[in-house]
Design a protein around this nucleic acid. Structure first.
Length: 448
RNA sequence: UCCGCAGUAGCUCAAUGGCAGAGCAUUCGGCUGUUAACCGAAGGGUUGUAGGUUCGAGUCCUACCUGCGGAGCCA
């Protein structure tokens, strides 16, 4: 096991082994699992890009190499040298004929790696999230998350948007509704963690035309559902002179682009997740668009057929089961627009054709995943906005700067926010958003 | 906050009010094509906490703690 022998072969990653068929390469990673059959060992290695099974016949390697591998423990870190060989029996199509190994850190058997290959409960896994992320499934999700974030930014960056990041510490509620995380801001003041950058990017949109923000947002709501985190990432475009129709077009092109990028780069990961790829391939703009009234009619029909448990009251927002039903009726995301203004935020522009409705949209992901995007055209009239702020009992002083935007060259403008974790959950086919972020923050967990 | 469910070996789970068990993990032994390998053996327990009922409680009752699922709210 000389170091020179180990380092002599060129470095490779497991994901790129197809390019190294027949060559001897060096992999740097960890032991994922070890099976043995007498004088034959089958160590499976992982390196963050994938997994590969090594083959170690006792007769083919020095005694010391065989013994070292035979005594390895799960998740011990190793540098392995071996020859890449195509093999039909291997799930990835390739195997590694191990020639040499260097153990970087061997986990003692008294303290085995806690996460075995067998089934575990949610609480145990979340308690060991720092180790859980090593498993193939979790790694696949995190790689797809990275692509979704990159594709989202790429779409805006290549379409003339300027990224302008709003503050994370804010002086007041953006919408005056959700619960906020509060903290002391030096001596006299309170500060709050942002729940949306929207109001701030309305300001930068009027400066730069097309902008977006991307960062973490915080909600102190005591929600405990598969769709909620207390800390989540949101990407929000805001565009001057954009109206509702244009906003819907932006949303469908944006979402289609993201799904396309995942399909291009993550076939292997989607396979690990056992995702039905055909369902993702159907995600192409344009998306179906229905009004709140039409959605309400669908729900009435569904209730008559017994497809949903409770009737939907006209005028109310849609509940979680309502959204799930509506979205499950389409093979691509459905855009629901023009909700009753009364149930929506104060800053949404009323529909000139029916002022009781707001020029807003929700995008509901298919397969019952529910809302991934919420957005609207914003009130552009100073007087209307001022009266709305007052009607919602919001402190006028705090919104003075926001009102200024309507005082100096106000224009129609619109934007939306997309929750990254919900998109990851949908694209990966997961049943809970806690697996979509490296370290989820939920109502009952802030560790690890 | 409300409704429902659950806490037993490191993990996943059994156990009619009557001796606390299995699989995996760990250790030892066997096996040259295994795919969460398999076969044999060993070690491993204050049954979430505090009370109560009972001859006897993992099991029944009360309170609390922790977690899970759902609702509301939202992305």
């Amino acid at each position: 096991m000389s170091d020179s022998a180990v380092s002599a072969a060129p470095l490779a990653t497991i994901a790129s082994l197809a390019q190294h068929e027949g060559q001897t390469v060096t992999l740097r990673g960890w032991l994922y699992n070890l099976r043995e059959s007498g004088k034959l060992l089958f160590p499976i290695f992982r390196d963050g890009t994938g997994t590969i099974q090594g083959i170690v016949p006792k007769a083919a390697v020095p005694e010391e190499v065989f013994t070292t591998i035979k005594n390895l423990t799960q998740e011990s870190s190793v540098v392995v040298t071996g020859k890449v060989r195509a093999d039909k029996r291997a799930p990835s199509g390739f195997e590694l004929d191990v020639e040499n190994i260097e153990v970087i850190h061997r986990i003692p058997e008294e303290t085995p790696f806690p996460i075995s290959l067998k089934e575990h409960g949610v609480d145990f896994l979340m308690e060991h999230r720092h180790l859980w992320v090593r498993t193939p499934r979790q790694s696949a999700i995190l790689r797809i998350r990275a692509t979704i974030m990159r594709a989202a930014q790429e779409y805006f960056d290549t379409n003339g948007f300027i990224r302008t990041d709003p503050p994370i510490l804010t002086p007041n509620a953006c919408e005056g509704t959700s619960e906020l995380f509060e903290m002391d801001y030096f001596d006299q003041e309170k500060a709050y963690l942002t729940q949306s950058g929207q109001l701030y990017i309305e300001a930068t949109a009027l400066a730069l035309g097309k902008v977006y923000s991307f960062g973490p947002t915080f909600r102190a709501e005591k929600s405990k559902t598969r769709r909620h985190l207390t800390e989540f990432w949101m990407i929000e475009p805001e565009v001057a002179y954009l109206e509702l129709d244009g906003l819907m077009e932006l949303a469908e092109n944006f979402v289609s682009h993201i799904v396309k990028r995942v399909l291009e780069g993550h076939q292997a990961d989607l396979k690990v997740l056992q995702r039905d790829v055909a369902k993702l391939e159907a995600i192409q703009a344009p998306f179906p668009k229905i009004s709140y009234d039409e959605a309400h009619a669908m729900l009435e029909e569904a209730y008559k057929k017994g497809a949903i448990e409770n009737p939907h009251t006209y005028g109310d927002d849609f509940g979680s089961p309502d959204e799930t039903y509506i979205s499950s009726q389409f093979d691509r995301p459905v855009m629901v627009h023009r909700y009753p203004a009364a149930v929506k935020a104060f800053y949404m522009e009323p529909d000139p054709k029916d002022p009781t409705k707001a020029l807003c949209l929700d995008v509901l992901a298919p397969e019952g995943y529910g809302e991934i995007i919420g957005g609207s055209q914003r009130v552009s009239s100073y007087e209307l906005l001022k009266s709305r702020i007052e009607a919602h009992d919001l402190p006028l002083e705090a919104f003075q700067w926001y009102l200024d935007l309507r005082k100096y060259g106000s224009v129609p403008h619109a934007g939306f926010g997309m929750g990254i974790e919900r998109v990851v959950a949908w694209v990966c086919g997961l049943d809970h958003v806690r697996e979509t972020i490296p370290f989820a923050r939920t109502l009952n967990r802030i560790y690890p």
